[in-house]
Structures are given as C-alpha cells and as structure tokens.
C-alpha cells in the first residue's frame, strides 16, 4: 500500500514536469540546409535575398547581431552612417583604410567576416582583450562555414541595408558550392521548370494558374508590368509586406522563402513574368 502511494506520488511529480516541458514553445533545431545556388541565373536581387536568408539561417548572424547588446545590431542601426564611420576611425588599420564609397564598404564588411579581429568595434571586444580580439567567429570556418559566394551574398545584403547598390561579384560557374554529403531527400528534389515549381508549392490552389480558376489570391497575369523582379520576389517570400488591393494579410503562406530553393524561386519569377496579360 505504501509502495503504491509512493509510486503514484512520484509518477504524478514526473508527469507535472513532463507536462510543463510540453507546454513551453516547441521548436526543433534543424541543422542548416545547404542552399543550392544557380550560378549564372542568380542576379543581384537574388544575392541580396540569399544574403538575408543566410544572415538569420546558416550564418547564425542574428544569434549575436540583434538588439540585445552582445554585438552591433546590424539590422537596427543606420549602416549607411556607421560603416563609413568605422572605416574613418583612427584605430582602423584594415584594407579599406582611407577609402570611401561602396567598394570600401564591401571590403570592410568582407574583412569583418573573414578576419573579425582586424578591427573590433569599441566596447564589443572579448572580455579582457581591451577590444583587440573580437568574439565573432570567422564566417568562413567552422562552425559557420560560409562559402565565398555565400559571404558575397551576405555582404550584398548588408550593403543593400546600408542603402548602397551591392558591388560584390555575381557567382561564376567555377564557384558553385561543392555538393556536401548531406544529400537531400528524394521528395525534396528541386523543381526544374516553372510549371513544376508552381505545382510543387501549390500556388494554383489560391491563384488562377494553369487553369485552376482559384480566386483566394489575386490574378497574377501581367505582373511584369506592375512589379519589378525584386517586388515579385518579395511578394512571394514576404507576402505580408505589401498586400494586394482587395485582399487581406496573412492569407498567403509566409514560409515559402524557407522551403524554396533559389533556383525554384527564380523559375517561378520567370514563369509569372511570362504569364499572358
């Protein structure tokens, strides 16, 4: 009897802990997914978008670069003002020293990525290093391991945020990232045509595409006249930034950006632009 009482009591305690663990927000931490970049077809708008994705995804930059004070809040501060000021700082001795203009900003950002300790933003150095050693890991080595193209993309994104047109080179064929061991699942084979991509992501369930006559979302014919490529991209990846007239926010799924490959996104944009008016 005592035994049963003790066991029931212990079980109850255990269940309380388990229940609590199941009540807090549940998020699975997935390993970074390799972006397959279509060298040749990606343009600068694509690079900026890729950079944004990498910034909070594989690059893990938002882990430190946020409004919590561990590192400069790159998404919050006025980069157009801050970056030139850093380069002009007396104690700055890096490659962009004495230079100005978009190219200098590119060099400064790239240097921050591959050699963070070259210049440490005052107040952010490693404890006890008198701002000589940066706590930021090199972006091109483990655990972050961005490729050259990916670092270019992140740089393009930050230049874009600083209000300059990105000056980074577009990737050329021989820079294509090597296939890694982590092969994708069968069903996640990238779509290779616009129609296939549209089908794969079910756009036609809401938009009148491929004769679906769906009317949950607006007609997409004649987009090329109304919108730039970048705007179309944005409408797909961040549908809630600009809402089409006569429709409501939060209707279109906002996670296509996470699911899609860049190649697919490009295919879809091309496909949409070619729709008859």
């Amino acid at each position: 009897m005592t035994f049963a009482r003790v066991m029931i009591f212990s079980l109850f305690t255990l269940l309380a802990f388990t229940g609590f663990a199941n009540l807090v927000p549940q998020v699975q931490g997935d390993p970074p997914v390799e972006e397959k970049i279509d060298v040749g077809s990606i343009d600068m708008a694509g690079m900026v978008l890729l950079g944004e994705k990498l910034f909070s995804g594989k690059g893990t930059c938002t882990l430190c670069h946020n409004d919590m004070g561990r590192a400069p809040d790159l998404l919050g501060i006025d980069l157009a003002k801050e970056f030139p000021e850093r380069i002009a700082d007396k104690s700055y001795e890096g490659i962009a020293k004495g230079k100005t203009g978009p190219k200098a900003i590119e060099e400064y950002i790239m240097e921050s990525l591959v050699d963070p300790s070259k210049y440490v933003v005052p107040g952010y150095g490693k404890k006890g290093s008198n701002d000589k050693i940066s706590p930021m890991p090199k972006a091109d080595t483990a655990p972050i391991e961005l490729s050259k193209v990916e670092m270019n993309a992140v740089t393009a994104f930050l230049q874009d945020k600083a209000g300059i047109s990105p000056t980074v080179p577009l990737p050329s064929a021989d820079e294509a990232p090597k296939a890694t061991g982590n092969d994708e699942d069968e069903e996640n084979e990238p779509a290779t045509t616009g129609v296939a991509a549209i089908t794969k992501y079910g756009c036609a369930t809401c938009h009148d595409l491929e004769g679906s006559e769906a009317d949950i979302g607006p007609k997409l014919n004649g987009l090329a006249k109304r919108m730039t490529d970048a705007k179309i991209l944005e409408a797909i990846v961040k549908p809630n930034v600009v809402i089409a007239k006569g429709f409501e926010a939060d209707m279109m799924p906002d996670d296509f950006g996470e699911q899609m490959r860049f190649s697919e996104l490009n295919l879809i944009v091309e496909y949409l632009k070619k729709l008859p008016e």
């Binding site: 931490g29 909070s56 995804g57 893990t60 938002t62 882990l63 919590m68």
Partner: peptide
Amino acid sequence: LGGTHHKF
C-alpha cells in the same frame, strides 16, 4: 530567426 540559433 531561423535555423538552429536565435536571439538571446
């Protein structure tokens, strides 16, 4: 915030 890492 995506991926494995987050705001702190």
